[in-house]
Design a protein around this nucleic acid. Structure first.
Length: 218
DNA sequence: GGCCAGGACACCA
DNA sequence: TGGTGTCATGGC
């Protein structure tokens, strides 16, 4: 299984090159983006983040102090703005309550313990949590998203019905715990999912040689 | 005008 | 545990 996973990685990297993820300027922006992108097109998230920057709200202190109704209006383009504004406030409140408002301090401890801690914050589920750990904190916690499940079930490596932790274990039990490697691998999976297969439904020249119809089925 | 997007959670059986 | 409804905008 390890060789197969490495082979797929090599194919994706050879085709698409390094993706330089996550698309954000700071670790805090990664955390905000991870929450805003929940079941949402990334283009809409970019609009919301641009609004936050415009209004000087992209900092732990600013998000802590802004009224939730104001925040909801600012992040409106990302969709689900009422729930996401509450989730952003919950994350920042946790950051101040447990880590003095400092991401650096939050990431200083043992990351597996931090993972359990963050999963207890309302609005931070497994994918959001792992995205924060990997892309904001540089921790070797593999991210599983819709693209990952779709692709690797299409490749026959996991069941279509496999739950999050099962898919995550496929990678973490078989690959070295290297956050740069996990970063690149997941970024390539997402890029393949939206830039290749979605724009070219027939998947002509798909580097993975998989049945395209399986990938496009929801 | 319908479908979908880098989920999470409450509720129910 | 597993299935279903809810939250919502914007691009195609």
């Amino acid at each position: 299984m390890k060789d197969r996973l490495l082979e797929i990685y090599d194919l994706l990297l050879a085709r698409y090159g390094h993706r330089h993820w996550w698309p954000a300027e700071t670790p805090f922006e990664v955390c905000v983006g991870a929450i805003l992108t929940q079941n949402t097109n990334w283009g809409n998230v970019e609009k919301a983040i641009a609004n936050l920057k415009r209004d000087g709200l992209l900092s732990p202190e600013a998000l802590r102090d802004v009224p939730v109704a104001v925040l909801a209006d600012v992040i409106r383009p990302s969709g689900f703005f009422n729930v996401k504004s509450i989730r952003l406030k919950a994350f920042v409140a946790h950051l101040f309550d447990h880590h003095g408002g400092s991401l650096e301090r939050m990431f200083a401890g043992e990351w597996r313990k931090l993972r359990e801690e963050l999963l207890g914050v309302p609005g931070i589920g497994r994918e959001t949590c792992d995205s924060i750990l990997l892309y904001a904190g540089g921790k070797p916690s593999f991210v599983v998203d819709a693209y990952t499940k779709r692709l690797f079930s299409a490749l026959g490596l996991v069941s279509e019905k496999a739950d999050y932790e099962t898919v995550r274990s496929l990678f973490m039990d078989n690959l070295p715990a290297d956050h740069r490697f996990y970063n690149e691998y997941h970024a390539l999976i997402v890029h393949h999912g939206k830039e290749h297969c979605r724009k070219r439904p027939r998947c002509a020249g798909c580097p993975l040689h998989v049945c395209p119809s399986a990938i496009h089925l929801q």
